[in-house]
């Protein structure tokens, strides 16, 4: 079922219950206040809240070194300090909420699942589709990030065309495409990118040993 974004805590007026599906958090009245009392804060809350609070404090401390305006009025430090203070405050709210969480409450959403996917809520956001990523998923994500880093390191030496073709092939293969398909798609994509950026937009892509 494509429940309304699992536990969607509400858009404006959504409290009327766009929830067509029988998902746990999709009943009418999962409006923010009512909802937050019910939904158990997940690990993401305490980690995110803690980091936000830490960042807030760090920003305030760092901003104390900024100069003030002539006459002593706060200048460059004013906005960062306000932002830092609010970050720290809201971060603490999340942490406190997690500490005082109701351990008996049923989690409306899997702790790992983005509680509400906001602007980009996604395909078949089913509650059932649990989301503890498999080891393959982790290595695939690492392969994606790794290939961006590799591009940064290698493109200057091998040039754009060779680097991106190899990386595309490797990544497609790793993600499960057949080698023939991967090779054809890698070459095709490279040609398309070259055409769009180098030829149409005149972006000087890194050239390799073969010019």
């Amino acid at each position: 079922m494509t429940g309304p974004a699992a536990g969607s805590e509400a858009g404006p007026g959504a409290g009327a219950g766009p929830g067509a599906g029988p998902g746990a958090g999709s009943g009418p009245g999962s409006g923010s206040r009512a909802g937050q009392g019910r939904e158990r804060p997940g690990l993401g809350d305490v980690i995110g809240g803690g980091l936000a609070a830490g960042l807030g404090v760090a920003v305030i401390l760092y901003a104390r070194g900024f100069p003030s305006l002539p006459g002593g009025a706060p200048g460059p430090a004013l906005f960062p300090s306000i932002i830092g203070a609010l970050l720290a405050a809201f971060g603490l709210v999340l942490v406190v909420r997690w500490v005082r969480r109701d351990r008996t409450a049923r989690p409306a959403v899997d702790p790992g699942e983005p509680g509400a996917p906001g602007e980009r809520g996604e395909p078949g956001e089913s509650v059932e589709r649990a989301s503890i990523p498999s080891r393959t998923a982790w290595t695939n994500a690492a392969a994606i990030l790794g290939s961006v880093v590799l591009y940064l390191l290698v493109a200057g030496i091998l040039g754009f065309a060779i680097t991106i073709t190899l990386l595309l092939f490797g990544l497609m293969w790793r993600l499960g495409a057949r080698p023939v398909v991967a090779a054809a798609a890698a070459i095709g994509t490279t040609a398309l990118i070259y055409l769009l950026f180098q030829v149409v937009l005149l972006v000087p892509l890194p050239t390799g040993p073969f010019g």
């Binding site: 969607s8 923010s32 995110g48 809201f90 971060g91 999340l94 509680g115 996917p117 906001g118």
Partner: peptide, 10 residues
């Protein structure tokens, strides 16, 4: 914002 407003604020 959809989801927790505290998180939206952060």
């Amino acid at each position: 914002s959809r989801g927790s407003q505290v998180k939206g604020a952060i």
